[in-house]
Design a binder for these strands. Structure first.
Length: 491
RNA sequence: UCCUCAGUAGCUCAGUUGGUUAGAGCAUCUGACUGUUAAUCAGAGGGUCACUGGUUCAAGUCCAGUCUGAGGAGCCA
């Protein structure tokens, strides 16, 4: 029975006789017969097909001998039509490529009406491509972006796996509104037009699906801490939702976040891990996606040529990534950061729009100055004033600061935010009281401090922000397949 | 949410102090050519000038509102 089934599958999987273009290009042009399948990028001169199958940005040139193929077939070889080609690989007579396929058979798998297909073999604006996000994968830029995105995701799992971390799937739907990480999306099955109400007129969520008000998660951290204080070292990597009305190049309403959480780690351990982690995943991409990075670097170069000299970056994309891999991040305390800002020429010349003094939550302009002007590399800032940080961060002995650490990256800003967590029950509940965090709703979180509490730490990394940094793209909406932003949930 | 800028052909954009039938390049279609590299050459078709209202003899152009997009800010990852 199983055998018949498998034999049946063999027929179904005949397509797997095909060779991927990425693989084909590394083989000798020895006249062998091969089968390739892909999408037509351009068809020149009624003879030359530039064929792409998504395995690489490099197209394979398929040559159709004049007069050998039916005119009706030739007419159907339009941009983005899909085809199967059987032919022989030979050294190319033309100049632009080493190898080409002399076609014996060409079969149309799917037509693409040239009058209606929106992509042309030319430059398109990223804004236009965003409007046709379902088709933009078929461009070189987005092919590279999404292969790099994949490689980063894979490298993240590999890094933590090698270190013995356990991958946790924390819930997407949560009942606690206490995390304070921003506006939340309500999850409800109650009728919007006529929800049940309590006597005082407020909505009666006891009749809702979960019997209480629920939202989409804004962070898996609190649940992550529960797992870490038993399994030791865990990480989450999942979708995260913020209902903030943010319209910027670095915010999404739905994004992916990586949140490791480690028992028996202090702030120093936390920083060391975060830095090693970022270096590791960037090195992985440098080693495994060089062709895509080269393409993206070239794209960025051309884009920057449009800018005035003073707006251009000093380093190319590859240089920038190699620099991050090969150099220690700068580590300073918040207090030192404020001192640097106060002594900066920018401050003395009153270039900052916002005032600088100890206690402020640093503005973008301040972070950019530190990272892009003063240090010109990623900077880890530690020990922030407690009043501008979350309730769960460990209170330092000075009574003023907490054991927080933010990693700031050139061009992106905050890429990692983390801290050593407050493991002392009294300190934690005391801070919750001061900050009006309802302790009763978080009884389960506090139980970790009641029973066998341990020093622990963790951080969150915005996945799309690291993809932005690595690909050199300018807008976060161009490094996620189908961006969700205010007024946009298309596709 | 705030500030600034923008919305004209499928795409990228021009359109003067308001003035007759709104243009170009690319793409598309037709034909020619054929070792091309975003092929080339010739011709053709293609427009609710974002939407609504107003000013005016006359609005793509001026005014108001709305919608959408971009950049910056805030919030943050």
């Amino acid at each position: 029975m199983l055998l018949t089934y498998l034999y049946g599958l063999q027929d179904v999987f005949m397509f797997n006789k095909r060779i991927k273009i990425r693989e084909l290009l590394n083989q000798p042009a020895d006249g062998r017969e091969v089968t390739v399948m892909g999408w037509v990028r351009t068809f020149r001169n009624n003879q030359f097909i530039a064929l792409n199958d998504g395995s690489t940005n490099t197209n394979i040139q398929v040559v159709l001998e004049l007069g050998k193929f039916d005119d009706v077939l030739l007419k159907r070889l339009t941009t983005s039509s899909s085809i199967k080609v059987v032919g022989h690989i030979i050294p190319s007579q033309g100049k632009g490529q080493q190898m080409e396929i002399k076609a014996a058979h060409v079969e149309i798998l799917g037509d693409a009406d040239a009058e209606k297909y929106p992509l042309q073999p030319k430059k398109h604006s990223l804004e236009f491509l965003r409007e046709i996000a379902h088709l933009r994968f078929r461009t070189n830029t987005f092919g590279s972006v999404f292969r790099v995105r994949h490689a980063l995701a894979f490298a993240i799992h590999r890094f933590f796996h090698e270190k013995g971390f356990v991958y946790m799937h924390t819930p997407v739907i949560t009942a606690s509104d206490a995390e304070g990480a921003g506006e939340m999306f309500r999850v409800s099955t109650l009728p919007l037009d006529n929800p049940p109400r309590k006597e005082d007129g407020t909505i009666d969520f006891s009749q809702d699906f979960f019997g209480k008000a629920t939202n989409l998660t804004v962070s898996g951290q609190l649940e992550g801490e529960l797992a870490a204080t038993a399994l030791g070292e865990i990480y989450t990597f999942g979708p995260t939702f913020r209902a903030e009305n943010s319209n910027t190049t670095r915010h999404l309403a739905e994004f992916w976040m990586v949140e490791p959480e480690m028992a028996f780690y202090d702030l120093e351990d936390n920083m060391n891990l975060a830095e090693e982690f970022i270096r590791y995943i960037i090195r992985f991409v440098l080693e495994n996606n060089r062709e895509d990075l080269d393409f993206l670097a070239q794209r960025l170069d051309e884009e920057e040529k449009q800018l005035p000299m003073d707006k251009r970056s000093d380093m190319g994309l590859i240089q920038k990534l190699e620099f991050v891999v090969n150099n220690r991040f700068e580590r300073i305390t918040y207090t030192e950061a404020i001192d640097i800002l106060l002594q900066s020429p920018a401050y003395k010349k009153k270039k900052f729009q916002y005032d600088v003094k100890w206690g402020i939550d640093m503005q973008s302009e301040h972070e950019r100055y530190l990272v892009e002007k003063h240090f010109q590399k990623p900077v880890i800032v530690t020990n922030y004033p407690k009043d501008i940080k979350a309730f769960y961060m460990r209170q330092n002995d000075d009574g003023k600061t907490v054991a927080a650490m933010d990693i700031l990256a050139p061009g992106i800003g905050e890429i990692v935010g983390g801290s050593q967590r407050e493991e002392r029950f009294d300190r934690l509940t005391g801070r919750m009281l001061e900050m009006n965090i309802p302790a009763d709703e978080l009884w389960w979180y506090l139980d970790t401090r009641r029973f066998g509490t341990v020093p622990h730490a963790g951080f969150g990394l915005g996945f799309e922000r690291i993809v932005l940094f690595v690909t050199g793209m300018g807008n976060i909406r161009d490094v996620i397949a189908f961006p969700r932003t205010p007024k946009n949930a298309e596709f």
